[in-house]
């Protein structure tokens, strides 16, 4: 099998798509460097990230397919699901052939896979908009750690920049060691390696109040742990104030 290996960045991936159109050897798979395991049968082609090429593909998706498709491609890419780059590749091949009608092809396996992964990313993002917990730490900073399945913090940033526009905050993906930081004007995304900062007395009080509220609001006669766990998977609990 021919495998295109890219550096893991979105630009690197788009470059791989570019190459797939100009290289005689078409990829059977496209994988990120971190997911690539060398073996005797497969033939890797290492893609060198090239901004000009990636920009061309970026514009191509937008103009020849649709803005919506571009958004979908980006979200599926952020899923970090191993097969995602390959799924996107096939989706784009169809897309460049038939244009903006591509998403109507519900019977096509690749279009369906795209939809499914896209949905997973969107639903985790939506879920985390609710489950994220800020803590007030030093310097009036509201700090929120999380470890999502997909690489979603960039997708969450706008929501909080609008909503919490008058407070400084940081959303820290502890799994990927990156953070979105907002300074009352704009947000940036940055690599970060930081232990959880300590919290003060005021923070402690509100955590207590929230835990108390959480207990009081449940109707004991209607306990339903299965439903609770399905709506709020246990893997997210370690970051939830009320579940600590």
């Amino acid at each position: 099998m021919v495998i295109y290996v890219f550096d893991g960045s979105f630009e690197g991936f788009l470059t791989a798509i570019y190459e797939s159109y100009y290289n005689k050897e078409k990829p059977d798979k496209i994988v990120a460097m971190d997911d690539y395991v060398e073996n005797l049968i497969d033939r890797p082609i290492f893609i060198e990230t090239d901004e000009i090429k990636s920009d061309k593909v970026y514009a191509g998706i937008k103009n020849k397919i649709s803005t919506n498709a571009l958004k979908k491609v980006y979200h599926v890419f952020l899923s970090e699901v191993m097969e995602a780059p390959t799924v996107i590749y096939h989706y784009l091949r169809l897309g460049f052939k038939i244009g903006n009608k591509v998403d109507l092809n519900l019977m096509d396996d690749w279009v369906l896979r795209m939809d499914k992964i896209n949905q997973q990313v969107a639903s985790e993002k939506h879920r985390m908009l609710g489950l994220l917990r800020f803590q007030l730490v030093e310097n009036d900073l509201y700090y929120a750690p999380l470890a999502p399945d997909h690489n979603i913090i960039a997708l969450m940033a706008n929501h909080f920049a609008q909503r919490m526009s008058d407070q400084k905050w940081m959303i820290h993906d502890t799994k990927r060691c990156i953070a979105v930081v907002y300074d009352l004007k704009e947000w940036i995304i940055t690599p970060i390696d930081l232990p959880a900062p300590p919290v003060g007395k005021e923070e402690y009080l509100y955590q207590q109040l929230w835990k108390e509220y959480y207990q009081s609001i449940a109707i004991k006669e209607r306990r339903n742990p299965r439903l609770q766990k399905r709506c709020m998977p246990v893997r997210y609990w370690s970051f939830l104030t009320e579940k600590k």
């Binding site: 609710g130 489950l131 449940a218 109707i219 339903n224 742990p225 609770q228 709020m232 939830l240």
Partner: peptide
């Protein structure tokens, strides 16, 4: 501070699953 999300957002689920 604050805005409303048109689809609504759940922030937690209590022990009764609500």
């Amino acid at each position: 501070i604050g805005n409303a999300a048109v689809s609504g957002i759940c922030h937690s689920w209590s022990d009764d699953g609500r």
